[in-house]
């Protein structure tokens, strides 16, 4: 089938999430920013790295105000590893093939996940000694360690260089230069390719022809405009195509005074309405234009304003305009409020 009905889609919160990190993760991240790795001791003596506010088995509070913090590493041993032959650029820590490893840092009782830059799977074994390669520009994030590298026999880890703050101040996780790290930014994008589905495709194809196509289930007389594929009352497929008028009445509405709710929203104020089309049994949502907002009222007859160029797209109906016909009587639409 045509790929016209498969759309690119992304989940990406503009600017990224702001994650407040709390005192324990905050101290760990502050340490990373300073080029140190700190763990926290649980009540049974285990040193947890990366530290959490709670013992990962008993959930008891650890690392609080009187927490027992311990410098660990920076070197450690690989507990297990896997090979990433095709790094995800922009997400994975390295853009060349690398290993993910669980690393038990010297002095720690748990293992930390990180990347190991070792060229090929032959460059790493379980038990290998590894040490962090620090970034010069550190912001208080796990990625302040660019990756770990394998140490040769007797080789010592390289200490972090003094922290370098970028000239524009970017690079500082919380916007303050020296204070403890209290939050981190988490920006990411997940991409999708989403198909329209059969019922929506029928509806959109109708729009491209200037028609509003609805659907009805064989067992029912009720017609659904812009059906998702079923009669929602019964779950029965709306397998029978029914053409619906492009005129109907406003059943209820609101006047929107908030700018910028959508790229498609017109200048404020505007009217967003529920519309009962002639021949349909469910409500459509639409914008009412072509008259002053204060003239819009319940029962007002409206008609679709079609775009000059019709496409299989919801935006082929630009908005709805008054027809000037007498109002629909309340009786006509009161059961659909």
């Amino acid at each position: 089938m045509s790929e016209t009905f498969v759309a690119e889609h992304a989940l990406e919160y503009p600017g990224g999430y702001t994650r407040s990190v709390g005192p324990v993760i905050g101290r760990f991240l502050t340490g990373l920013r300073d080029g140190r790795i700190e763990g926290v001791r649980a009540r049974d003596g285990r040193v947890i790295v990366p530290p959490t506010e709670y013992d990962p088995v008993t959930s008891d509070e650890i690392g609080g105000d009187d927490g027992d913090w311990v410098d660990v590493g920076p070197a450690g041993r690989v507990v297990t590893w896997s090979w990433v032959a095709n790094p995800r650029v922009g997400k994975h820590p390295l853009d060349r093939p690398f290993a993910f490893a669980l690393i038990r840092l010297d002095g720690a009782d748990t293992a930390l996940l990180h990347a190991v830059d070792c060229g090929s799977p032959d460059g790493i074994v379980t038990g290998a000694r590894v040490a962090p390669r620090w970034r010069a520009e550190r912001v208080g994030k796990i990625t302040d360690i660019e990756c770990f590298t394998v140490l040769a026999d007797g080789e010592q880890p390289v200490a972090a260089t003094p922290r370098h703050v970028a000239a524009d101040g970017a690079g500082d996780a919380d916007g303050t230069d020296e204070g403890a790290v209290t939050s981190m930014n988490s920006a990411f994008r997940l991409e999708y390719r989403i198909p329209a589905g059969a019922a929506t495709r029928r509806y959109l194809n109708g729009l491209a022809e200037g028609r509003i196509v609805g659907g009805r289930a064989p067992s029912s007389t009720e017609v659904y405009a812009a059906s998702r594929g079923t009669d929602p009352k019964t779950g029965e497929p709306t397998s029978i195509e029914v053409e619906i008028s492009d005129a109907g009445c406003v059943t209820t509405y609101c006047v929107v005074n908030i700018p910028g709710l959508s790229e498609l929203a017109p200048e404020i104020p505007y009217v967003s309405a529920q519309i009962l089309l002639d021949g349909a049994d469910n409500m459509m949502f639409g914008l009412i234009r072509g008259c002053p907002v204060e003239d819009v009222h319940m029962g007002m007859r409206v008609k679709a304003k079609w775009a000059d160029e019709l496409k299989p797209d919801h935006r082929s109906i630009l908005h709805w305009e008054p027809t000037g016909e007498p109002d629909a009587p309340y009786e006509h639409y009161k059961d659909n409020l």
Binding site: E8, I194, L204, C254, V256, L261, S262, F285
Partner: peptide, 14 residues
Amino acid sequence: PMPFQAPLVAGAGG
């Protein structure tokens, strides 16, 4: 905003 779904232009209050 989800592809192929009627665009929302009025928010939750809308």
